[in-house]
């Protein structure tokens, strides 16, 4: 199959950047989207042109590195999927595919499709950890946790920090990410000790990093590869209000 890529090229954080067109031939439907980019890059390198910079690591949907905006959607045309899980059979022969980096003031572009997502790490540093001494893995039933709570915490913990929620949000809000991190630990007894401090500090950092505020468009939960529910944001708001007014 042949496609026509229209890809954002930008040399460094300060250069202007522009779209470049690349016709790519000889792809197959069972290639992943990243393999199609690799295919193109091999040709560019062979011709002594600059390879397209993009990020990846696991290529199996668990690391969250492969953030790319494809044809108007974060991680391409499907709901709840990372770019590495996207296959070329999702496109048709002869398609033009527009490929852009995540866009947000808090995610400055480093090069081409690579953006700096440190802002998410900075939020994590404000409380997405526990101070309790855990030592070696304890006996599983030493701390009893009800199944529904364990499930809820696990669902939130599934966030891989890809930033698709920020990328798709018209306000570039990091509310879904931050809510997932807060609700994961605040739902569990291990996270109870610094629960109030955690929600206050992490939401504060979220604002300081220049993310916008949530207006519940709901785009994030559709693009999130882990299907983190937007209800988490409402719960974060409740936790924040409780921490603010009742300590």
């Amino acid at each position: 199959m042949n496609v026509n890529f229209k890809i954002w090229r930008q040399d460094n954080p300060h250069s202007k950047g522009h779209f470049e067109q690349y016709g790519v031939e000889g792809l197959t439907g069972d290639m992943s989207f990243l393999e199609a980019l690799d295919h193109l890059n091999e040709r560019l390198v062979a011709n002594n042109e600059k390879a397209i910079a993009y990020e990846y690591d696991c290529r199996e949907g668990i690391c969250g590195q492969c953030g790319i905006f494809i044809n108007g959607r974060a991680h391409g045309p499907h709901d709840h999927m990372t770019t590495c899980q996207l296959h070329m059979r999702s496109f048709s022969d002869g398609d033009t595919i527009v490929v852009e980096p995540w866009r947000a003031a808090a995610f400055p572009i480093i090069k081409d499709l690579v953006v700096d997502r440190s802002a998410l790490d900075n939020i994590i540093e404000q409380g997405a950890y526990i101070t309790a001494k855990t030592g070696t893995a304890p006996e599983a039933n030493a701390i009893l946790i009800a199944k529904d709570l364990a499930d809820k915490a696990m669902d939130a913990a599934a966030c891989i920090g890809c930033g698709a929620c920020v990328a798709t949000c018209k306000n570039a809000s990091a509310a879904l990410f931050t809510a997932a991190k807060i609700n994961h630990l605040n739902s569990l007894p291990q996270g109870a000790h610094e629960a109030s401090k955690r929600v206050m500090q992490m939401t504060k950092q979220m604002e300081l990093e220049g993310f916008g505020s949530c207006t519940f468009t709901g785009a994030c939960e559709v693009e999130c590869p882990e299907g983190i529910s937007i209800v988490n944001i409402a719960e974060m708001n409740a936790r924040r209000a409780k921490a603010k007014w009742w300590g």
């Binding site: 044809n71 947000a104 809000s173 916008g212 468009t217």
Partner: peptide, 28 residues
């Protein structure tokens, strides 16, 4: 104020954005 601040948080828009596939026009 919020609308302006949120626009500042996303100063560069996507060339192609099919947000109709993940959210309502109203909410946008």
């Amino acid at each position: 104020l919020i609308t302006l601040a949120n626009q500042r948080a996303k100063p560069k828009k996507y060339a192609v954005n099919t947000f109709g596939e993940n959210s309502s026009w109203t909410s946008q």
